[in-house]
Amino acid sequence: MVKRCKASNVDVYVDAVINHMTWVNRSGSTKYGSAKSPYDEYLYPGTYQPWDFHRCGRNGDDSIANYHDRWEVQNCNVTTCADLNTGAEYVRTRLASYLNDLLSLGVAGFRIDAAKHMHFADLQAILGRLNKGAYIFQEVIDFGYEPIKSDEYFPTGDVTEFRYSRNLARIFYNGKLSWLNSFGQDWNFIPASKAVVFVDNHDIQRGHGGGGEVITHKDPETYILATTFMLAWPYGYPQVMSSYSFQDPSQGPPNHEGGKTKPVYDNNVLQCGKEWQCEHRWEPISNMVMFRNVTSETSINNWWSNGNNQIAFGRGNKGFVAINKEDKPMNHVLQTEMPAGNYCDVISGSVKRQECTGQIVTVTSSGKVDLKVGARRAIAIHIGSRI
């Protein structure tokens, strides 16, 4: 898989769970993992022995109860998952060996799960043993009111900015898009050069791991508008989600009887839009990824809003976007820095064989556009969508 992705210029980042193992097995009988490997309470034969774990001795089951206690957060179990002693030499060596094995397969880097549950010095020691360079981003849930802070982990890589998702949802559901004109570090977010941002991820869409009211695929209209903004706005390194439908927050992926996961392709037919959601394939979102790439070296210009829920802004002379979250059309003549010509709106369609399958937007010789954006819709053009 890694080789196939690399051949298509797609890098693979592994979600590395190195802080802990599975839920502590206190059943009294041996349990088995998905690959049929046995494990018991704080015992993973051939891999970890009981002395390779923290046993914090708190709260009756060694689990975290007080997130305002730094020591407890980094030495007790996350939701009863057996917490590895990442300060121990054997554990550090074992984890580094695992990561190096993945690098040897060609992966480009790692998302470090539950990073704040490891002391930053432990993480530095483990990542310092990698055999070659890798892109690292770390899950640190920091809303500003706990002792462990995102900036402690800047030396080892980028950091997830969970405040981004929560505030974006607050604005799109209960606020005004006009507030977004300074969205980013001015909102007490971490520096843009260190932030990994997302509308939702696999945890918070289920209410887990810093979850709350966030925008998900279950509200596709708002999801497209919010993702359009994220990919057009130059703050952080954006992630695009790809989900499956669920009713229960603990529900696994679509599967056949017996538990085998259903393929996304069935008899060469893509199964998106039913059990598989595939947000990354939704035309407006996949097209906005190109918008992001085309405009990556530009800054914001020509910001406009109606003071409420209609906004527009440019990205240098490379792109322009307008978002209308109101229940009435947005009809305005606005200034851009785009070269004169006809452009394909990449939200409503795509350029195929030099023709636009969606709305055509015309930029005049003076850089003006006569925008007509439908209710709860967006328009985006970029230099690559000129026809």
Rank of each mutant, 00 (worst) to 15 (best):
S29A: 08
S350V: 13
N301Q: 10
K372G: 06
S63L: 02
P38Y: 14
W304V: 09
W233V: 04
G212Y: 03
S8I: 09
Q74H: 06
P50A: 15
K260L: 10
I64C: 12
S365C: 00
N25H: 03
L43E: 11
I204P: 06
S34K: 10
V373D: 08
V14E: 05
T47I: 14
K325C: 13
Y32G: 05
F198Y: 06
I190A: 07
C81Y: 01
G374L: 03
I224H: 09
R206F: 06
D151W: 15
K368V: 07
I215G: 04
A340D: 04
N174C: 09
I383W: 01
N75R: 14
D142N: 09
G46P: 00
S8G: 08
R376T: 01
C344T: 09
Y32C: 02
H256V: 05
G184N: 07
R4G: 00
Y44T: 02
L168E: 01
N167A: 10
Y135V: 11
Y44D: 01
W51G: 15
V12Q: 06
C81D: 02
Q74R: 07
K260N: 03
F313Q: 05
Q271G: 01
K116L: 01
N75V: 02
R386T: 08
L177D: 06
H202F: 07
R94F: 10
I285H: 05
S299W: 04
D151I: 04
P238S: 03
A169P: 08
E146S: 12
G384N: 04
I141E: 01
R26T: 13
D11Q: 14
S29I: 09
S27A: 09
K36D: 15
T222M: 13
G367D: 03
S243V: 09
G133D: 06
I285K: 08
D266P: 00
A380N: 06
H256T: 10
Y237F: 07
S178Q: 12
S365A: 15
T357Y: 01
S242D: 15
H68A: 12
A192R: 02
E337L: 14
C81R: 13
D101S: 15
F137Q: 00
I190T: 09
N25E: 08
M241I: 14
V363Q: 10
K176L: 08
R353G: 09
S178E: 05
